[in-house]
Design a protein around this nucleic acid. Structure first.
Lengths: 212, 212
DNA sequence: GTCTATACAGTGATAGAC
DNA sequence: GTCTATCACTGTATAGAC
């Protein structure tokens, strides 16, 4: 209840409203409670439709879950890019990149998605791959491309850009990601993210800055 | 079935056999399938006792799960130590430490435990803290203590040992941990672990070695 | 397509005999 | 303490009316 719909109103105008409402409701419920703790009843209620209608659009709970995960994986990480950053000003660019990465990967929605994926990967082996390709793999490629440009511009000394990109990402992530996954603290604010980014970039540059 | 008991035999000699058999069975089942997918019937069957007997020893499924997790968290990480490593030979010592850390944290049992904890942390908020204290926090402290000794011996230049320990652990973990959590590949062998350890230590030393 | 009502299976938990 | 048999409940999924 809350952000979603008004069950009192007729139903949504426009096209395909019901199917979309079901997907929205399923997304909210799954992200909030995981797979096992959510019932089809709850999803139907939250979407303002009957349970039979849910089954008219999706073959079952697992199908619905898969649709939600594939959709979210694509959505969250689509916008992550480093293509406009200046390779000459490595420090500032890497810091920006690190901040972007942390804001994305530590966002409550991304953490919740990651959490239920890890918890249910035994039941849905394929979803792990979908998430990896859309998320971590994509972000690593973006970082790696930036590192290559920085090498070309002479501001970085890296022998293996792919490995260095992985190390950069790992350094930036630190233990904040795991702490979020385990719900050990609230989502970090701008200041905490900025501090973590700066510290990680400083270490990375001590290791890889040209002429250091 | 297999490692545990022979249902055909009388019952175990010695003391407390049933309770232990139940805990063993619960551990195997939970690690293999998570919390939601395991039934008390399955645990009772696996332990070779009736369901009523399970409830005679544990108040319920959640209680049993909590007992398993607390036990495992303590068990796995107890042996992790860096106290006997030589701070003068930083490179070799850090490499050994990194290998130990990876062998522990990437072991199938530790990954399975981590996975179900992350998946069920909404239902069992306290268990995340238990695991963190016994696992990551403990390992970080061990690393930090070694770094302090290395600083004292003049082989490392570190301003914030705690932060550096976190960065070392993150660097070593890389993306292998997350890949294991998502079941994207088989558990890495000795060679893969050694390679990852070496690469992480090399980068760490480029950033923090004294007189680099 | 959508609803109400229901079938059917599986779950955690317990009662009562021994 | 341990077992067999059973309860009450919840969940997924579907039948039939509109």
């Amino acid at each position: 209840m809350g952000a979603s719909g008004n069950p009192g109103m007729r139903d949504d105008t426009g096209r395909g409203g019901k199917a979309e409402a079901i997907l929205d409701a399923a997304r909210r419920e799954f992200l909030a409670s995981g797979f096992g703790a959510v019932s089809m009843d709850a999803i139907a209620r939250e979407a303002g439709v009957s349970k039979a209608t849910v089954y008219a659009h999706f073959t079952g709970k697992e199908d619905l879950f898969g649709a939600v995960v594939a959709d979210l994986s694509e959505r969250y990480f689509r916008g992550f890019s480093a293509s406009e950053l200046d390779p000459a000003d490595v420090g500032a660019s890497l810091t920006t990149l690190a901040r972007r990465f942390l804001a994305l990967v530590l966002s409550p929605e991304a953490v919740a998605l990651n959490r239920i994926l890890i918890g249910e990967v035994s039941r849905f082996p394929a979803l792990g791959e979908v998430f990896w390709a859309a998320g971590p793999e994509r972000t690593r490629v973006q970082v790696e491309q930036f590192l290559r440009r920085a090498m070309a511009s002479g501001s970085l000394m890296v022998t293996d850009p792919r490995a260095a990109a992985e190390q950069f990402v790992s350094l930036v992530r630190g233990d904040m990601h795991l702490r979020q996954l385990l719900k050990l603290e609230q989502a970090p604010g701008r200041a905490a993210i900025a501090g973590a980014a700066e510290s990680a970039v400083a270490t990375f540059l001590r290791a890889f800055a040209a002429g250091g």
